[in-house]
Design a protein around this nucleic acid. Structure first.
Lengths: 365, 365
DNA sequence: GGTTCAATCTACATCGTTGTATATCGGCTG
DNA sequence: CAGCCGATATACAACGATGTAGATTGAACC
């Protein structure tokens, strides 16, 4: 019943050539008589032959696939990041396999060490549970590019963003608008690493440079950076009775949640409270009101990550310094800070890129 | 420099057993002396052996991977769908490879016929460019599950939603709230198939059952169902001067865009205009105001699609009727229709599921 | 006219597993 | 005690492609 797969063997037989010649035709090897090529192509067509990618992968030791490990696609930032990375990979002839780690430590380790290690040529990894102490786990013997702000000293290439500087710029911008009681949503108490810690640090620097005091009462905690947690953190801040005239949500999802919570209490944005997010996802360009946000250069992050990985794959085994790349980011002003009256969005601050840095300790990736 | 991959051969040698025994240990074959098993495990541990998935795939003719083809992940509905499908697949021990078609005809055909055909065990395909005329292209010789509303007579299992009934219910609900000038955003002029046509049909039926006339001036067109196109369509409707007291956006992304456009014109939702979307994505639960929407049963769609595909894969070659599954959907009422004052969301209408239907023309999938 | 070389094609081994058939051993059955 | 069976382990071929080395042309070269 089930038609057995057509192989090169069958094609070779029908075309009256060797199986290797079929392979050569399929792979575009140039030195083939036009007549032969035609016979082979006819046979392929007639038999409906399709190359077996798995067999080729085994023989060539390449799969032309890469893995992208992110927490979850239902978080808009990661969905958009995945979109960009898939496109960038496609341009390089690569297919992307997505692993959702759910920000679970176990799953993140599994991605690094698990079964599928031999299935793709490399890994772009955006950790959320692992931290600096886990650097050892990243010493895998295959091409790896790390994203994000949790692990900086990994033996791997690293694409990140200018968190501190951008957060500082956000805070300064809010201060420049005359806001004095700038709250934060999404802090992680006691944490020393990761986006939360860095952006909070930028916030403190921004306050300081604006001559504003740091008030712990203005710092709202939120574990996972979802819309819902942002709304909860915002609600708690408001309920605490602390005076607030601006909110810096450490990512856009929380900014949307915060906006929701503000609206529920009939607090006007931006008249009563100004609001800024981080990530510049599509949502904040259409929310009501639109939300000012930090564009961390998502496209560039994606393209760079793929490019670095492709390089590592090509040079597998060749030692070369690990690189840290930090694309330029910028603040896009929108209604939530009164920077534009409606729609649009305009750059109100550009944050210098960190450029490309080569790290001494050059091991083999 | 580069460590050559450790194979079963190396493990076998170190453990002093045959390579097949190593394979048996790795695969959990029961009849192995504990002592032997331990020696093998020690060797695996010591050498850092990892199974080569590609080789196994070749030998077993299975990859335990499935392909999911969607237009793009930056559309929230598809991001959430992908999330759900990846989780459902994981529960079945499958990994998901995502292909973005960008709603391009060419890419959609490529996904069906392309190189990677032999790389995964099956395909879950959500077409946006192909239509009923392309049914022939779907006669592929491998497990396939089709999603969506564009192709109904494909020789494949099909998971869809109750578009007409749900859209009718939405319209009736708006009418029941006293709205008389119900506009639509996202129609596709002249199109006979697909979500747009079906939902528009439901809209017409809803109007009719409510005794309201159908007014073409109230129908706004939008090609791609993005936030931006929804905003444009809404703006055009408003600029046309037509009277409107409710808007049915044919998906949530457009509803968010429409809300944005309404807000830009200082039109209050829901006081001046009520708004309903479709898909029940996360965004509409946190927008300002929150938006009433149709929950098409995304989780169930995902689980069903994976389950059907798994069944086809297991029974490859066995003929069995093609099935069409239509999960139940429901309208979740929120602020944009005044159904709740804030937050939350409550079911205001349940739409009967279409159940499972078996289609006569049973070919082999 | 022998040599050289590019073009064209083929044979064979190989990538790292798993399926199949088979060998060996000891114990249990009747 | 012959016969049988389950437990344990192995040898060998096979999955479907590609890399390597080499065979066979015919034209070009000196």
């Amino acid at each position: 019943m089930k038609a057995v797969a057509v192989t090169m063997h069958d094609v070779a037989q029908r075309a009256g050539v060797s199986i290797k010649t079929v392979s050569n035709v399929v792979n575009g090897y140039p030195h083939i008589r036009p007549e032969t090529r035609q016979r082979v192509e006819e046979a392929i067509e007639h038999l409906g032959y399709r190359l077996n990618t798995t067999a080729r992968n085994l023989r060539t030791r390449r799969t032309d696939m890469i893995t992208l490990a992110v927490p979850e696609l239902s978080l808009p930032y990661f969905a958009e990041l995945a979109d960009s990375i898939i496109r960038a990979a496609e341009d390089e002839g690569l297919t992307v396999l997505i692993e959702q780690t759910s920000a679970s430590r176990e799953r993140e380790i599994e991605v690094l060490t698990g079964l599928r290690r031999h299935l793709t040529d490399g890994l772009i990894f955006s950790p959320l549970a692992l931290g600096p102490h886990d650097v050892g786990l990243l010493s895998v013997d295959r091409p790896l590019v790390v994203l994000g702000e949790r692990i900086f000293d990994a033996p791997a290439d690293h694409v990140t963003m200018n968190n501190v500087a951008a957060a500082k710029a956000v805070t300064q911008h809010l201060a420049a608008l005359g806001r004095r009681r700038i709250a934060v949503v999404g802090a992680h108490e006691g944490e020393q690493v990761g986006s939360a810690a860095l952006r909070l640090e930028g916030y403190r620097q921004g306050l300081e440079s604006a001559g504003l005091p740091f008030d712990p009462a203005l710092v709202g905690e939120a574990g996972l950076w979802h819309r819902s947690t942002g709304a909860e953190a915002m609600a708690q801040l408001l309920d605490s009775g602390v005076e607030v005239d601006a909110v810096f949500a450490l990512n856009d999802a929380m900014a949307l949640g915060a906006l929701h919570a503000l609206h529920a209490r009939r607090i006007d944005v931006p008249d009563d409270v100004a609001l800024v997010g981080f990530d510049d996802i599509d949502d904040v360009k259409f929310s009501v009101p639109t939300i000012t946000s930090v564009d961390p250069g998502r496209e560039e992050i994606a393209r760079t990550a793929v490019a670095l990985l492709v390089e590592r794959i090509a040079e597998a085994g060749v030692p070369r310094p690990f690189r840290r790349v930090v694309p330029a980011s910028r603040i896009v002003g929108r209604e939530s800070t009164g920077d534009v009256l409606e729609g649009g969005g305009q750059v109100v601050a550009a944050v210098q890129p960190g450029g490309v840095e080569e790290i001494e300790d050059a091991r083999t990736a």
